[in-house]
Amino acid sequence: MALLEVRDLSVVFQRKGEEPFRAVDGVSFDVEPGQTVGLVGESGCGKSVTSLAIMGLLPKRGVTITGSVSYDGTDLLKLSDKEMRDRRGRDLGMVFQDPLSSLNPVVPIGLQVTEVLERHRGMARKEAMVEAKTLLDKVGIPDPNRRLKEYPHQLSGGMRQRALIAIALACRPKLLIADEPTTALDVTIQAQILTLMKELVHDLGTALVMITHDLGVVAGLCDEVNVLYGGKVVEKAMRHKLFAEPRHPYTHGLLASIPRLDAPRGEKLTPIKGSVADNIPWSQGCAFAPRCPNALDVCTRETPAEEAQLGRLLRCHNPVVPGTPAAEEVSV
């Protein structure tokens, strides 16, 4: 049994007078201690909703969550709000894209860290202060003594993100969910933060769920990668396998469409046609069909099922044959 087992997780939003909207659609994955699992996909594919559902942070009204999220054998979806709040401080940590919105603006950074230490690790104030300083130090915040007394707005974006990681680390969570933790940061700062997260996983055996739209980040950090499209996992494999031989037309198309720093100049990019606005509902076939160069007739009639094959999960009627160059024609 894995530390975290997400099974068939679905999230449906229902607004008054509107059609129900299935933001996450039967997502399953496991995370082991010391392992990093990536959720990757473009804007709106359901990455954040998945993480919020796991953490019990979605609003109660107008939201239906089905499936199970078993953490160390307990289904988190069945816990009460209070039990969940307790878990969040202790076992589950989360780092968001925008650190300012998840830090308390009127409480000094130091107090935000010591609070967690006192509440979840039962430390006395003095002891917590010393530990807080060590934590800020560890995440690379210069002059931690002084920073402890400062408010979030006094820190730069990179420093805030570190402070947030320090808070997440304060309770030594066994599972950390990071939702685009570096998207708002400059690349040189991103490199620092990603290195820090790698050390965490390696040194403390933290299980990490890494959510990002950046395939480069995934390539360097994640053991297993889940590619999401329109709320469903369309391809899942270990990173080496996925990048060396993307089989789903969406994964394949994404990799062909991003410029690589190490590619020879003059190499043309092969875009994916259209945009997510062209998607059809999964209930009518494959959501990607209107944009897919491999689409067959069956793709707009039957929803492709998830199939396992040689260390890979694939949801596609007509996967890319290994070694195929990217599709050429592209119109709007």
């Binding site: 040189t188 990603l194 080496h240 690589r260 720093l261």
Partner: peptide
């Protein structure tokens, strides 16, 4: 510091980490 979408490359890369902001 720029990630390359290729695990083979990422695994071999030397990274120069800058300190501070």
């Amino acid at each position: 510091a720029i990630p390359v979408p290729d695990p083979e490359v990422e695994d071999r890369r030397e990274r120069i980490l800058l300190a501070g902001d």
